[in-house]
Amino acid sequence: MAAPTTPSIMGQVALALLPGAGVMLWLFGLGVALNIAAALAAALAAEAAAVRLRGRAVGPALTDGSTLVAALIIGIALPPLLPFWIPAVAGALAVLLGKQAYGGLGQNVFNPAMVGYLAVLLAFPKALSLWPPPEAGLGAAVPAGEALGYFLTGALPPVADAMTHATPLDKLSTQGLSALAPSGGPLRQLDAAGAWLWLGGAFTLGGLALLARDIIDWRLPAGVLGGTAATAGLLQLSGGAPVTFHLLSGATLLVAFFIATDPVSAPREPGARLVYAALIGAVAMVIRELGGHPDGFAFAVLMLNATAPLLDYTVRQRRGERTT
């Protein structure tokens, strides 16, 4: 095996994201691809402009693959029915505020994709709550024509109300645990759960491939899943949703395998990494169960990003005290 290079590592991460993106495309239609394309185009343009302004070589910065990975994650995280400027703003802000503001690749404190995603989540809360119900088949959930029309014009198609659908996490947040129980339309509810299961399986597949190829550190996904399960378990005792629901729904698996594993914004010390990842899971669970937002992973990731240097410092300091 030839020595890995940064583009080859980023390329493998992007490849590992493809199963997840494919399942999203299959469940939610063309909108996913449009989101990814808009985010990628805006992110590349922003990267080129910022690198040029900073007086660095544009070529290597565009081809290092980090922008591609960030755009893929943004495209997957956003709901599949959006006007083009929202994913574009997310992609551009991810690069400009999340990465280049700190000095480019390798220097950033926060995960760029999460910076871009959260910026648009807070700026366009209504648009970002619009999830169509998952439906197997490329055009089944949203017809391709309507998706493209909304993407280009921003005018909500007439079927919009019919398409609006509360994700399981939305239901948990607004109506409580009872709404999750399959009572009204048992078949439809089961279908939905099955769809989320498919998506989780695709993310896990990609993540396991990265683990097998030694691209990501096992401590990070293990920590996130462990922290999520432990906190969800505790909260379940006081009447929260079941642990398996939290592990399989929303962004849990995407964060565990693709976002928390970003080595730049994670701590460097193995011990610190375990604590960091477990705390991401814990904070996200607290937000999900007790906070106002349906999903808390993006907030949890940024919060723990900020503490990464402190965790590293503490671990090194403790080891120094032990050895001397």
Partner: peptide
């Protein structure tokens, strides 16, 4: 190859026989 920014992947620390953290 030409030098690229460090992404803190930690491979250097893994292989260092003296247990250092080169990055």
């Amino acid at each position: 190859l030409d030098e690229q920014p460090c992404i803190s992947c930690g491979r250097c620390a893994e292989v260092c026989p003296e247990g250092l953290e080169p990055f």
